[in-house]
C-alpha cells in the first residue's frame, strides 16, 4: 500500500516537474534531475527505506525495456536516413565508445580510484543491462556500474545541449550520435527534443555502442 503511494507520488512529482520545464526550459530544471532530488528529499523526511519506495515505483523501471523496444518503430520510420549515413554513424559510434572506455579508465587511475571502481566505470556509456554484463565480465561491481550509468545519462542530458551549442553541431545525425553514444536512453530522450531524426539516430547509436562496448571492452581493458 505504501509502495502504491510512492508510485503515485513519483508520477505526480514528475508531472509537475515536466510542466515546470515546459514553462521554464532551463537545462538544470530537466525533470530527470528535479524529480529524483525532490523524491529523495521526501524519502529522507519520511524516513522511508529505498526498498519500500521501490516496491511500488519499481513498476516504472519495468517500463524502460518496452520503451526501448518502442524505438524499433522510430527506427523503421527513419531507415532511409540511417542507410544514407551509415558510414558516418558507425565511425562516430566506434570513436565514441572507445574514447569512453579509455578516458574512464585513465582518469580513474589518475584519481587513484581502486581497480573495482575503475572496471565498474569503464562500460558506463552503454545502456544499463549491457553495461552491467560487461562490468561483471571484466571484474567490476554491477551496482556501481548501474549507478555510474545513470549518472552518465543524467550528466549527458544536462551537458549535451551546451556542447551542441558551443561546438555548433547542426546536423541531426551528428546530434543523434552525440547523445546516443554518450548517454544511452537518457540521451535518446534529449535527442528527441531536437527532432525525430536525431532521436532515431540516437537509438541506433545506443544499440551500436552497446554492441561495441560488449565486443571491445574486455580486450581494450587488458591493454590499458
Amino acid at each position: 500500500m505504501e509502495g502504491l503511494f510512492w508510485l503515485v507520488c513519483t508520477i505526480a512529482v514528475y508531472w509537475g516537474a515536466k510542466r515546470l520545464y515546459r514553462r521554464v526550459p532551463k537545462v538544470y530544471l530537466t525533470p530527470l534531475l528535479v524529480t529524483p532530488v525532490l523524491i529523495i528529499a521526501l524519502i529522507e523526511i519520511g524516513g522511508v527505506s529505498f526498498d519500500t519506495y521501490d516496491s511500488g515505483s519499481g513498476y516504472l523501471t519495468k517500463l524502460v525495456e518496452p520503451a526501448t523496444i518502442a524505438l524499433a518503430v522510430t527506427l523503421y520510420k527513419h531507415l532511409d536516413v540511417l542507410k544514407k549515413n551509415a558510414v558516418a554513424i558507425c565511425s562516430g559510434v566506434i570513436c565514441g565508445a572507445v574514447v569512453s572506455i579509455v578516458t574512464s579508465v585513465e582518469m580513474s587511475h589518475l584519481f587513484g580510484l581502486g581497480t573495482a571502481i575503475t572496471d565498474s566505470l569503464a562500460p558506463r556509456s552503454a545502456t544499463t543491462p549491457i553495461a552491467i554484463a560487461v562490468s561483471r565480465s571484466i571484474g567490476g561491481v554491477p551496482t556501481i556500474t548501474a549507478v555510474a550509468t545513470m549518472i552518465t545519462g543524467l550528466l549527458g542530458l544536462v551537458m549535451g545541449p551546451y556542447l551542441v551549442k558551443w561546438f555548433n553541431i547542426r546536423s541531426s545525425v551528428a546530434r543523434g550520435v552525440l547523445f546516443g553514444t554518450s548517454a544511452h536512453s537518457a540521451g535518446i530522450s534529449k535527442a528527441l527534443e531536437y527532432d525525430a531524426v536525431s532521436g532515431s539516430v540516437a537509438g541506433i547509436a545506443m544499440m551500436l555502442t552497446a554492441f561495441i562496448t560488449l565486443a571491445v571492452a574486455p580486450w581494450l581493458m587488458s591493454w590499458i
Binding site: 514528475y14 530527470l32 524529480t35 524519502i43 521501490d54 516504472l60 523501471t61 520503451a67 545513470m150 536512453s185
Partner: peptide
Amino acid sequence: LIGEMLLFFIPAIVG
C-alpha cells in the same frame, strides 16, 4: 512510451 521515457528512470536514480 518514448515520450515518457524519463519517468521510467526516476526510481533507478533515487536508488
